[in-house]
Amino acid sequence: MEDILRPLFEQCASKSTTLGIIMIEKEDRLLTAMDMFDVIVIVVEIWQDKPEVIKHYSFREKKIAFYFIDERRLQEWVLLGSQPKMINMLREGHILFDRDRFLENLRDELWSPITKKQKLTIGLEFAELIRKFTEGKVFFKKEQFFHAYYYAVYALYHLGKMAMIESGLMPDSAVWRQIKQIEPEILKLYEELVLGNESIDKRLELLYLASEFLIYSKTPVGTEHLLEIMQEKPLWRFEEIAHHPQTKHYGTNLSILLDYLIERSFIVPIQVETSLKGIYERCYQTG
């Protein structure tokens, strides 16, 4: 297939804006979820007018997809872990063109021990976990058990993704199959919630009891990124945390995460006087 597509590869590689080209064929296990195409080619470019362009080709009975991806968009995916299937293809696909080792350097970063980017990805998953877990318990206390069940399932999903990233893996659509090898305790919680014989309210009650300590044990690694940023100075206003270049990705989860960390003494709220009598601004420092 590489020889057949060579004219297209060479056409892309001849452009000064092309940083790298990588190919995945359907026989590769990575394409099991993309079986509408026989071949996928990723072309990474710099300063494209459009962030992503997709072109479809055919050769005899083969269907081929070319993804033209802006380098900035790709770096964002790597930073946030928001496109795990694409990232796995970048990690394991066949490199056809690589200007100045752009793709090789990216792979080195993806395969390295936990980096600052991975700490952020873990932090974002932990923040989602805390949000889903907290909101689920609110619904549980209101006896809205089906809503609580929904949030509990997704809380465990984010807990599993977090454990996988911590282990150096990139989660894909088969998270539960992967997590079985890494942290079977999380899979057991999921199976008891989904497949248990008890009533839905009893299953939820057992889940909250069993997962409380497990989530707490994940707090240091789950908040390492945020707490490292907050150690840069002694006191933070909320807006300073929310708009910091390294923490802005937490979005609406930030408030709930801060409250969780205050309850567990990782962060301390500080009252700061304002110009208005009796009104204080709530600021934060690490515990």
Rank of each mutant, 00 (worst) to 15 (best):
V153E: 14
G251C: 11
P220D: 02
I114S: 01
F146S: 13
I215D: 00
F133A: 04
P113R: 07
L261F: 05
S14W: 02
E143G: 03
Q181L: 14
P220K: 10
T17I: 10
E52G: 08
N88S: 11
F145K: 06
Y284S: 06
V53Y: 03
S217G: 05
W47R: 15
V268Q: 11
E52S: 07
I69Q: 10
E104N: 09
M164N: 07
K62H: 13
K202L: 07
E198F: 11
L209H: 13
M164C: 10
K119W: 08
I54W: 13
R264F: 11
T286C: 15
D201I: 02
V44L: 03
E281T: 12
L90W: 11
D259R: 12
L120D: 02
Y280L: 06
W111M: 11
M89W: 07
F145V: 11
A242G: 06
L103C: 09
V272G: 01
S265G: 02
P234N: 12
F68T: 14
K233P: 10
L257C: 03
E27L: 02
K85S: 09
Y154W: 13
G160L: 09
L235A: 05
Y157Q: 12
P7W: 06
I241N: 01
E263D: 15
A210T: 01
A127L: 02
R203E: 08
A13D: 00
H243T: 15
H56K: 09
I114M: 07
I270W: 04
A148T: 01
L110G: 04
